[in-house]
Design a protein around this nucleic acid. Structure first.
Length: 458
RNA sequence: GGCUCGGUGGCAGAGUGGUUAUGCAGCGGAUUGCAAAUCCGUCAACGCCGGUUCGAUUCCGACCCGAGCCUCCA
């Protein structure tokens, strides 16, 4: 039982060893709740959900926190645009985010800290940084002084000089060094704000995560995850804040997922080439989206397309079909995870594509197995599915249900199947085939077997 | 410009210093009234040029191409 993860900080795979022997702390950057999550936003959620499930098989206590950023310029802008209150906007999109992620079979995190509930911790952290000479006040802002930290840039592997060379942004006049970033900024009277030693204001984005991690998980956590694009500046700055405030390690393992591409370009809100999870759920079931997201390794870009989703749908249908044929077979026997190849694949830096390949191998064994071997094989397949967060539904429910609007209802289908059975018994094959064609046109595929005719929606 | 990371068969996508996953699609066969599902078999790949090596897709170097970060972004 040993998990290996790729640590962005060291740029290599490392054996995972938590700080405490039987417990793990994990934090993943959550959403800024000003609009709907897109499918790219869902990738880290699904990836780290698999990690969460995997860790739970080995450690007695796994504390997984995913924050809600509910104070931000974009939220203020969104509220203003729609003429609604900030709270109304954040409540709506927080609720929708939870629904969408649940639809993807993502387990709820252990903790879901909200930025606005942790303002005191943020102010305290800012004060500590000022006291220790790592931050300064300037024109009602409080800024982190990057030059006060010798190894600033270590995570993103760039030096302050590199950053200056590539600077594309005008430097605000209240900054001592162009790389200094905001810990606290003033709030306009009409905007949300909190009283602080530096006047009424609100926290900078990077500060939120550092403060919430400290408040809820401690000074050193085991795993911090998020999208690759957060490496700089967000995570770099978190490290600066937390290390300078508390000393010691901040995060033992940094994990970053690659993003989803559309036509070879990153899917992002700024490019506008995104598809929301909610919209996609109108066409595909959450499990299909989840499977698609897991079909490539989390550190590789994944090209998002209709073909990808159709492929995922077809593959899941094949697995559920396998399970449906075994409905009378109980899943039984002891599954020794440590010896399972799908499990070892996941232990190796979450190699989900390889784990899925092992699922195929299990399904194949199942098709060929003697009856006596089936209960254990089925249990193994289901255990693998559980870790990946798939294949847990009743096969008929999955195969006969659909994401979109319902077509022909099940009763009518059964009636036609019965009629076709009779036609077949009478050797009226033309009629039997006509019924099959009619059902196919209605999106229903038939499968004859010794046990009778089964159907599924396609 | 600086800093990262990639380029694998028709498509998706793992992996490895030598026996070259897996899925879909294709082809041949078994099965089926015909299909579907399933099974058996089969085709096919490692960007380009050098180097190291008995042997490289895998290691090293150059080159070409692509993506990302350097600004809010999963």
């Amino acid at each position: 039982m040993s998990i290996t993860v790729y640590n962005t900080l060291s740029a290599r795979k490392e054996p995972f060893e938590p700080l405490a022997p039987d417990s793990v702390t994990m934090y993943v950057c959550g959403p800024t709740v000003y609009n709907l999550a897109h499918i790219g936003n869902a990738r880290p959620v699904v990836v780290f959900d698999v990690l969460f499930r995997l860790l739970q098989t080995q450690y007695g206590k796994v504390v997984y926190a995913r924050n809600i950023t509910d104070v931000d310029d974009k939220i203020i802008a969104a509220a203003r645009e729609t003429g609604r209150g900030i709270d109304e906007v954040t409540a709506e999109f927080t609720a929708k985010y939870r629904e969408d992620m649940a639809a993807l079979n993502a387990l709820p995190p252990t903790l879901e800290p909200h930025a606005t509930h942790n303002i005191e911790a943020m102010i305290a952290l800012t004060q500590t940084l000022i006291e220790k000479g790592h931050a300064y006040e300037s024109q009602r802002h409080v800024l982190f002084a990057v030059e006060s930290m010798p190894d600033y840039g270590r995570l993103s592997k760039r030096s302050l000089d590199d950053m200056l060379a590539g600077a594309r942004v005008e430097v605000a006049d209240y900054k001592r060094h162009p790389g200094d970033f905001v810990l606290w900024k003033p709030a306009a009277a009409e905007d949300p704000g909190w009283e602080s030693p530096w006047g009424r204001g609100r926290p900078g984005w990077h500060l939120e995560c550092s403060a919430m991690i400290r408040a809820h998980l401690g000074e050193t956590i085991d795993i911090h995850g998020g999208g690759r694009d957060l490496i700089f500046p967000h995570h770099e700055n978190e490290i600066a804040q937390s290390r300078c405030a508390h000393g010691g390690d901040y995060v033992r393992y940094w994990m970053h997922n690659a993003y989803l591409d559309i036509d070879g370009e990153k899917m992002s809100k700024s490019l506008g080439n995104f598809r929301t999870v909610r919209e996609l759920l109108g066409h595909y079931r959450g499990e299909v989206l989840r499977f698609a997201l897991l079909s490539a390794h989390y550190r590789s870009p994944l090209n998002f397309s209709a073909e990808l989703l159709d492929q995922a749908e077809a593959t899941l249908a094949a697995f559920y079909n396998t399970l449906r044929a075994l409905e009378e077979v109980p899943a039984a026997g002891e599954v020794a995870l440590a010896e399972e190849s799908f499990y070892r694949a996941l232990e190796d830096d979450l190699n989900t594509p390889l784990a899925i390949a092992e699922l195929h191998a299990l399904a194949k064994q199942l098709h060929k197995a003697a009856d006596a071997e089936k209960p254990l094989l089925k249990a193994r397949l289901l255990a693998a599915g559980k870790l990946l967060g798939i294949l847990q539904q009743a096969p008929d429910e999955w195969l006969q249900g659909g994401a979109g609007e319902e077509g022909i209802d099940a009763e009518a289908i059964d009636a036609l199947i019965n009629e076709r059975q009779q036609a077949k018994a009478d050797k009226h094959y033309a009629r039997a085939d006509a019924i099959r064609a009619e059902l196919l046109a209605a999106g229903v595929e038939l499968e004859d077997s010794r046990e009778g005719t089964r159907w599924r929606r396609i």
